[in-house]
Amino acid sequence: MTLSKNGEIGLAVLLVVLFLIPSMMLGLLYGESPYHVVPGEPVKEAADAAGISVVSVKGTLWNLTGALGGKTYVLTDPEGDTATIAAQAFDSADSRDAAVRLYNTNAPGKGRQIGSLIVVGQYLIYATPANSPIFAKLAPALQQAAKAQS
């Protein structure tokens, strides 16, 4: 099979497009998280709804531009699993999104990020370990809270 000069250029364009397809498709599939004010304490409310106990709560202010403060929860479920989940509010979409970028930047080497992060309105909610069963139980309620207000 042979290619004309135009065919070769077409192959190069196809290569560029191939790289952009996954990024663009994923962007469309998952959508952006709009910035809006979610009232109350979404983590505590989700934990209560899922029957997960709060072992301790501590106020935290992250050393990031636009961080307004939040709480770090240590949670435990009836199976005895524990997880640390931190919620931090941000004063704008830009500062919140900068924190999301920082999170992605912190991934060691060429591996995946440590912990899990979801965006709920003005909050970033960060859980360790990434695959904690507790966070798996909370995540649907948190994502619902994010959608309900948007």
Partner: peptide, 25 residues
Amino acid sequence: SAISLLYVFLPSVNQAYWILSAMTV
């Protein structure tokens, strides 16, 4: 450059970025 553009201006699409990281792995 094109992927960086998406990364900067759509940063809260965190789930999408996680999948891209997994693809890197």
